[in-house]
């Protein structure tokens, strides 16, 4: 593991130790965040799967009815029939925070809740198959909006999980080991310096004792 290029001083050691404590705390928090994001992500994936199967089934029915209506009615009559909508819908788009990820929230309000008031055409020129198709599309619309919200949320959560995972890994396998190694290195270096100083002092002491002993011998002779 590569060391961080720092001066092996006591001050630096204190600073690195503080960083290490912070990194360990951050690592734990990010790990918790990743685990919670994963939990939310898996819940959403399950809901996404259910919705997609349901929406695709409903769309197959809607398009099937639509194809038959298109075959029975002329293209011009079909275009004219669906030219101007009868039902109006408002969609409020806001966001919701899941573990610091802003996922979209869509709330929609239909102008009329009456299911029979969704057909914008007269009956004389149109086929009942078109009613079935419009009804299927009307029923699938809320599910489609929910699916859109969930798919986008899943994308955003997946990106956040990936980012958090990289951060956790970087802390776990790079930053914390580097800090550990560097503090160990500085400690060793400081210990080494301490030992050098001690040895030097012992040598000085020996030299001084020798000097004192020599001076005493000279005085006695």
């Amino acid at each position: 593991m590569a060391l961080i290029h720092v001066n092996p001083t006591r001050m630096e050691l204190t600073r690195l130790k503080k960083r290490l404590v912070m990194a360990r705390r951050g690592h734990k928090l990010l790990k918790d965040k990743r685990d919670e994001l994963m939990k939310q992500f898996l819940d959403m994936i399950r809901r996404n799967r259910e919705l997609r199967i349901k929406v695709e089934k409903l769309l197959v029915k809607a398009y099937g009815d639509f194809e038959i209506a298109r075959a029975v009615m002329s293209a011009n009559v079909m275009n004219e029939s669906l030219m101007f909508p009868k039902q109006k819908m408002e969609v409020d788009v806001s966001t919701r925070n899941i573990m610091s990820v802003n996922v979209p929230v869509m709330e929609f309000n239909l102008e009329s809740d009456n299911e029979s008031s969704i057909y914008p055409y007269g009956f004389a020129e149109t086929s009942a198959q078109l009613d079935d198709s419009i009804e299927s599309l009307y029923k699938v619309l809320p599910e489609m909006l929910e699916l859109g919200v969930i798919e986008k949320s899943v994308q955003l959560l997946a990106a956040e999980i990936e980012k958090t995972r990289r951060r956790v890994n970087a802390l776990e396998y790079v930053i914390i080991p580097q800090l550990n190694e560097t503090t160990r290195y500085i400690t060793m270096k400081l210990d080494e310096n301490e030992r050098g100083n001690l040895t030097r002092l012992m040598k000085v002491k020996d030299m001084m004792i020798e000097q004192v002993r020599k001076n005493a011998l000279n005085e006695s002779s």
Binding site: N76, N79, E80, M83
Partner: peptide, 24 residues
């Protein structure tokens, strides 16, 4: 009557325009 519906719906939509190919 089909053409009248196309013309009126174009007017209702506020755009006032329609694809001439939709006329019969």
């Amino acid at each position: 009557y089909h053409n009248i519906k196309v013309i009126l719906k174009a007017e209702f939509s506020g755009a006032g325009t329609y694809d001439p190919a939709w006329l019969s």
